[in-house]
Design a protein around this nucleic acid. Sequence first.
DNA 1: CTTCTAGTTTATAATAATTCTAAACTATAA
DNA 2: TTATAGTTTAGAATTATTATAAACTAGAAG
Lengths: 136, 136
Amino acid sequence: MKQKKAIVNKLRSSGLRPTKQRVLIAQNLFERDKTFHFTVETLNKEINKKGSEKVSLATVYNTVEAFTKAGHIKQILTSKSKSYFDTNIKSHHHFYDEDSKELTDINYNQVKLSKVPQPPKGKKIKNLEVVIRLQK
Amino acid sequence: MKQKKAIVNKLRSSGLRPTKQRVLIAQNLFERDKTFHFTVETLNKEINKKGSEKVSLATVYNTVEAFTKAGHIKQILTSKSKSYFDTNIKSHHHFYDEDSKELTDINYNQVKLSKVPQPPKGKKIKNLEVVIRLQK
DNA sequence: CTTCTAGTTTATAATAATTCTAAACTATAA
DNA sequence: TTATAGTTTAGAATTATTATAAACTAGAAG
Ligand SMILES: [Mn+2]
Ligand SMILES: [Mn+2]
Ligand SMILES: [Zn+2]
Ligand SMILES: [Zn+2]
């Protein structure tokens, strides 16, 4: 609501027209205090809550794809059956709670690696992510 | 072929009847030199290669599920669209080649962590896995 | 401001991976 | 040998996702 200008600029600067639907979704995603880990299904439910103007599921898919390509969100691998996305686009690690199936961010500097294998010849390390699985 | 007895015992000891199909699949999976990272699709192709007796796709799915439940293979997360499985059930790490989309094992002791965050209250660390993404 | 058009949204169809169903088959206990 | 619970199978159903194509709209150009 407040930073609508900023949202519109963010979209424009990545070549995305600030349509009603994209602005609505961007506000939901980026005007949060905490990192949001979500699937298209959960995002769609939030966006289409009672009272709000309806946005089609296809548009939610399209927008998530567009935001991912633009680097505003990133895809993460946690579930075998659904794609998950993350509003935290910095390199970081995760706790994955096996009971609740929920992800929590771990700051990059909260993990230190003192030994890492050499990448195979001709290949470079693009990034390194740690997933810590939790149980009760 | 050679260790058919061992395969049969492995199945029996986990409460699985050693049917023709399960033994065939188990031989393909467990009589290998190297770790095998696979999808149901690739496994099904191998199992149903020319000449061999046909096993239905449903059975390949059923068997992979049964072997996973029994702990003979484990599921891993690399692809957003397909389930991947691993014949290496020990805790270990992976290189993931973004170009070829191929996984390679990294021995557990090839990676050393000198700093790991505390798990949240009431939760224990079940395991910790590192994925190193590679690029050219 | 009006017009024009490429970009976007949308309902719906199509696809792909996986799971379900129920009938036929089989390993094995008795 | 028989009985039965477990297993296999073809095909249908389901679920997530992508494709299609017609209607709509942001915003550039006049
Ligand atoms: Mn979710
Ligand atoms: Mn594969
Ligand atoms: Zn995150
Ligand atoms: Zn592996």
